[in-house]
Nucleic acid binder design. Structure first.
Lengths: 178, 178
DNA sequence: ATTTCTAAGTCAATAAGACTGACATAAAAC
DNA sequence: GTTTTATGTCAGTCTTATTGACTTAGAAAT
């Protein structure tokens, strides 16, 4: 028995495929820690202003999908109308978000950020962008491509259409859905 | 098939460095969607049993750092004693977690999962492992390496020592801290 | 034109999960 | 023997989210 030395052939299929228990567990923990720290910075800024993470999410998607409807935002965020409404009411009251009546369908309320809203959005996303920027720069382009691929694969099929940018405009999808 | 179209045009430094506004924004949204869907499966299982995400986190880290102290768990999770205590009380009451008095320091309560606890942990992590496994397999080993690098870089410096596996054992750190 | 459906908004009640602050106990450290 | 540490607990608060019921306005269908 040659038990002393581990030959490369001794690796099973899952090990060669980087799918060991250890690596999957590390993946789970990476998601937990990275997400927590990623949201930590804006959370602190929001807290000072009496807002929460829900406000950030609304502000983010209104900023990047200007003119999105309330129903569209509910769909992207996967929250209930009641949850979103409370958040939206505050943001409108505080003059960070405006509503305009839809042109083709006047029941719709099209959402936009005010200047004040844009300012807060920039302030909130700055630390996240900086964190990503630093991580991307350190890890390099190939690592970034891998990061994007894996996260994209981890998403539910239905959620992928909400992703703006590289994989098709979400706004178009939403308008098509009407 | 997701990164199909790429226009070969003039790129500035940031674009070559994959640090365009667009790519940073997509990174932000990937984190949001992937994390939400990643936690969605266990959330449903927890819900059926009257537990929440906080219970899952406790169970996960007790499973993978058996004998961890209450203070150690508070440190890893970055929650308050009061928050953790409510969760822990339920898990002990429901016989998923046991406490044993520390041998060297009898003030400490060393946490372990019972068989029942191990079963629930396996049930909760199964969909997450499967999701990761599928994503890793589809994206390939290089992408997985990139995923890990970027997430690791995104974490706060202080959090990195809590990561088990590839980058040093967290358990040792915790024991050293005592 | 009337009915029906849809988009949005609101009220009420509930719950998980987190927080702060205050306080208690037991054991270790000095 | 005093102080510090580890744990546990009580009380109160806050944010986010839920479900359910109901209203208003406008669009669509007949």
């Amino acid at each position: 028995m040659r038990s002393a030395i581990r030959k490369p052939q001794a690796m099973n299929a899952d090990q060669r495929l980087f799918l060991t228990d250890e690596q999957l567990r590390t993946g789970i923990e990476l998601m937990f820690f990275a997400y927590r720290d990623f949201t930590g910075d804006p959370d602190r800024i929001l807290d000072e202003r009496g807002y929460g993470r829900a406000h950030h999410r609304a502000i983010h998607f209104i900023r990047h999908r200007p003119g999105i409807t309330v129903a569209g935002l509910i769909d992207v965020l996967s929250v209930t109308k009641q949850s979103l409404n409370r958040v939206l009411r505050q943001l409108i009251e505080d003059e960070l978000v405006t509503q305009t009546v839809g042109e083709t369908d006047r029941r719709q309320r099209l959402l936009h950020l005010t200047e004040k809203g844009e300012e807060l959005e920039a302030l909130l996303s700055a630390p996240q962008r900086e964190r990503l920027r630093r991580a991307f720069l350190t890890a390099g382009p190939d690592a970034v491509a891998g990061f994007r691929e894996v996260l994209l694969e981890m998403m539910d099929d239905g959620a992928r259409r909400h992703l703006g940018g590289g994989a098709g405009r979400a706004q178009d999808d939403e308008e098509r859905r009407g």
